[in-house]
Design a protein around this nucleic acid. Structure first.
Lengths: 356, 356
DNA sequence: CGTTAGCACTCTCACCCATCGAGTGCTAAC
DNA sequence: GTTAGCACTCGATGGGTGAGAGTGCTAACG
């Protein structure tokens, strides 16, 4: 086989790179195996199809391309995409007009990371024609920003807990006091809690609450509510990833490689299993760059036909989330990377405001 | 053709009903056209296959069954399912154990309709092996229960608005006052707003705000925030359906009739178009019973292969939402109806507590 | 008159086979 | 190193065939 010097990795000569690039870009648009002739016709390569065939054979033995069968054209391997992404092309930044439009959209949405991350997923789905994925910015330890209590009836109140991280938690608390509890009392309790617990985490709050005077009605009630608050914070802190929101899975369904819904079903199943995404997201959140997982590079069997492009956002050490896209391995990497990059940058800016 | 008295509608004789029922239930479990012989074997009908064939032919000419082709067994038509649901079977109530389990689950969730309706969809999906659908209880006009303001920086505050209906809205308000605004001032503003706006709707609130004294700093700020509150309420009131949450679409995907993902793709597309669901939900919310839309009864072309079973919940004139399931027309109607019925009843109870 | 056995008929499905065409890999010449 | 030429491979396509399932009809039966 080895007709010319084999360089399975490392600096491929420029012409080979150009051809690999052409194969990938042709395949990305047509979804059909690419033949030598098609390449010569559609890309001005200045050589004959026979020459191209030689090079294709070399690229194949280097593991960058494959053959579905003898008489078919070439298809990129996962490794081929990897090489393409790392050594041949650069990310294409999102056009300025679209950047502006998206900024505008985010400006219209309520001021809460709760809503941003969903919008991020939706936006990514629309821009890349793949599925958009996003998690909320999850702080290592949540901080109390605000406590509010609303009377529901004589013995129950609705507790509203605002976290510095931008999310709001709600819970019902039962106050089985001998005397009925009115809104005025609740206001006092809330004021006390706001005074004492501002910017505290679960652990700190627990200490503060221990110091309350149980003989005073207001303080006793505050203690009761405080217990609940601590429990909510602990739950929140314990969850690895609060939620994974995805949008535009339909886009992926439309790709011809998923016409037999079987493969896609597997992907969906894997997606519903949050443990996996949580893990992946955790690993991305640790790093500081875009992470690309192509096909079989993914440890999860079901994900072998799709590519994930994920980027962290937020503040290391404080709150971290992930945005990204999920598409067929056959996707337009330069655009997808550029888009994910922009959206994660935007999310960074937004989260910064929360901590400003 | 007409070998015996034709009764296209109305009281089918009992034996014919039993056979229609057998065909449907066999088809529901096997997803294969049902032949006369299979019926005789698997259901103790006490007659020969030839007799069954006669009856099948009659049921077919009455429009209750069809033939995919000459030499295939029978398949129920949409009309057949309709007759089956209305005249032959009754809803099977959900087993008491499961009822208990579900009540328990709802008890664990935060005290807010926001969360309940999602849980309802998830629960329905799990119980029926179809897709669960739910909308939040949407009040005709939202009422203010609580206003809270948290300082973000000198010129911005985060507004938290709790509605009597159980949902929470959040927004950023910019306070471009000459002097900086601190949390203490914000507390006064919030107290004022809570005092004046409690239980008011958008229109009422607007009147109340007009009466504020613009020369006082606190009142002026309250006016500023109030404008924003009114805008939020108006937006909320204007939306026909806030959100349609669905879960378990995967279940539907697994049905053999959707193996070629094309049909399902259409369903998904229709589902993403909220206008349609909003309309449907609106019509259900108006009525007071479970509504079943079988296959081509659905005005929307894309939904011709699925059945919707929807039930309203909430308080007429106050807040109304919808829960239900979406599955293949070939689904177990008695169970699905029983389950939807239970869940909508449960949601009713929960919403009742909000207004208690 | 309803029920049944028997039978011809229809249609799908699975299988085989031949053909076609795209695209390769090799070789020899430039 | 590049190219033209050519044999070869293999999937896709389409027609043909046989098996099997299930029907509809008819004639006989109680």
């Amino acid at each position: 086989m080895a007709r010319r010097v084999r360089r399975p990795l490392g600096p491929l000569d420029l012409r080979s790179q150009a051809i690999l690039r052409a194969v990938i870009e042709e395949y990305v648009t047509t979804a059909q195996p690419v033949g030598s002739q098609a390449l010569v016709e559609r890309y001005g390569l200045g050589v004959s199809s026979a020459t191209v065939r030689h090079i294709l054979a070399d690229l194949e033995s280097a593991g960058l391309l494959t053959h579905p069968h003898t008489s078919a054209g070439r298809v990129p391997t996962d490794f081929g995409y990897r090489f393409y992404v790392e050594s041949i092309v650069d990310a294409v930044p999102l056009p300025a007009v679209e950047q502006l439009m998206i900024r505008h959209q985010f400006g219209q949405v309520e001021f809460a990371s709760e809503h941003w991350f969903r919008l991020a997923a939706t936006t990514l789905a629309g821009l890349t024609r793949a599925a958009g994925i996003a998690t909320p910015a999850k702080p290592r330890a949540a901080h109390i920003r605000r406590v509010d209590l609303v009377a529901v009836n004589e013995r129950m109140a609705s507790l509203i807990l605002v976290l510095r991280e931008g999310s709001i938690k709600q819970a019902a608390v039962t106050l089985d006091e001998a005397d009925t509890v009115d809104q005025a009392t609740l206001n006092q309790v809330a004021a006390l809690l706001n005074d004492r617990l501002l910017d505290q985490t679960a652990t700190l709050a627990e200490g503060t609450l221990a110091a309350l005077d149980e003989t005073d009605t207001v303080q006793r009630l505050a203690g009761r509510v405080g217990e609940r608050i601590v429990r909510i914070l602990r739950d929140y802190d314990a969850a690895a990833v609060e939620e994974v929101f995805s949008d535009g899975l339909l886009n992926v369904m439309e790709a011809p490689e998923f016409a037999q819904s079987d493969k896609l079903r597997q992907v969906f199943t894997a997606l519903e299993n949050r443990a996996y995404l949580g893990e992946l997201v955790g690993s991305v959140a640790g790093s500081d760059r875009i992470r690309i997982v192509i096909g079989a590079e993914n440890p999860v069997e079901e994900m072998h036909d799709v590519t994930l492009i994920l980027a962290p956002y937020g503040r290391p050490g404080r709150a971290l989330g992930v945005v990204g896209v999920l598409g067929p391995t056959r996707m337009s990497y330069p655009n997808a990377i550029g888009t994910v990059s922009f959206v994660s940058g935007l999310m960074n800016e937004l989260v910064d405001h929360l901590y400003a």
